[in-house]
Design a protein around this nucleic acid. Structure first.
Lengths: 120, 120
DNA sequence: CAGTATCCGACCGGATACTG
DNA sequence: CAGTATCCGGTCGGATACTG
């Protein structure tokens, strides 16, 4: 595999779909809650700006990780749920987590972490 | 698991260690090449600035993903190789890759992707 | 050859106010 | 309530020149 092949390889696609400050925690709630309303999710995650949360949800929807259901009416009511594609990420996420638990047991203050996962 | 626990969970640690534009491709070479010299790696990855490549290698070394061996003398000669901890990421990376191959078969132009994976 | 020092642009995430 | 519009600051990555 040379560089040009690598650019398109699946690993980068997967990491790209996970790239976003709040996506892991969003996935966590979607995995454990079957269906969650926007404001509920927003309140569950303190310190995230509404705009940013919406951006990341939109990206995840475009990537097919979650489903967005809008129940029309007023006031608006939007529910998010994990998609099949998103749920299929479960094993990979579990593998990452168990790796960290085995090899990086020390807690890390993630408030200080700020590294792109982006690709080229 | 509430928000504060989540901040420290293993998934975020793992994604943090993978967060960096060139880390996946660096890992690729380390997985397949046993030992690789800096310039060789640099030449293998076109379009990456030497400074940036060094930064990411240093982060990966600090995270314990790779080992850096400096053979003193002149000219300097530095070899990088995967560590045990780094190699242990293999299954998780393979899981991500197979997920992408199954669910995101369409190729994506990664040159256009630029999303942080960062955490909070 | 490996690494450092600068400078810079782009982008991401944060804060706030506003709309339908 | 869900979403948009602005504005802003920090940080990451890119380019280049330089050093030991």
């Amino acid at each position: 595999m040379n560089y040009n092949e690598f650019k398109y390889c699946g690993l980068n696609v997967a990491l790209g779909a996970l790239s976003g400050k709040w996506k892991p925690i969003i996935l966590y709630y979607l995995f454990h809650q079957e269906e969650i309303r926007f404001t509920e999710l927003w309140r569950a995650i303190p310190k995230v700006a509404k705009k940013v949360l919406l951006e990341q949800l939109k990206q995840m929807e475009q990537d097919g990780l979650l489903l967005r259901e809008e129940k029309n009416g007023f006031p608006p009511e939007v529910w998010y749920r994990i998609s099949e594609k998103g749920r299929a990420l479960g094993p990979a996420l579990a593998a990452l987590e168990s790796w960290a638990n085995e090899y990086a047991a020390e807690e890390v203050d993630l408030l200080k972490i700020r590294r792109k996962v982006t690709l080229s």
